[in-house]
Amino acid sequence: MMEITPAHYTVLSAALFSIGVIGVLVRRNIIIIFMAIELMLNAVNINLVAHSQQVENLVGQAFVVFVIAVAAAEAAVGLGIILAFYRNKETVNIDEMNVMRW
């Protein structure tokens, strides 16, 4: 069997990112769209860690820590917005989320 190179990890990362893009563009449930965004962030993290290991420099892993922090903040605020919207409009369908104020 052939050896695993960073190219393998890049291909895995690209595939995972594309699945996330499909989720964002095709689904209508905003919670699932948020989960697809988390998938894309994870794809980027895999890429960063793989190349950080290849060049034997931990800066990539330090960046992943920041990406995870931003993802946590995004999930907290985003889900808060979803809850506030659901209480007012009784829907999680993005096609019906077409108002900027109420």
Partner: peptide
């Protein structure tokens, strides 16, 4: 952080947002 924190947050929201009408049924 992910499996312990963020996903629990998602689960709470999914349970709170109890949609009687699944969003995929709405056709725009």
């Amino acid at each position: 952080v992910y499996a312990g924190g963020i996903v629990v947050l998602y689960l709470f929201v999914v349970m709170l947002v109890n949609v009687g009408r699944p969003p995929e049924e709405h056709r725009d």
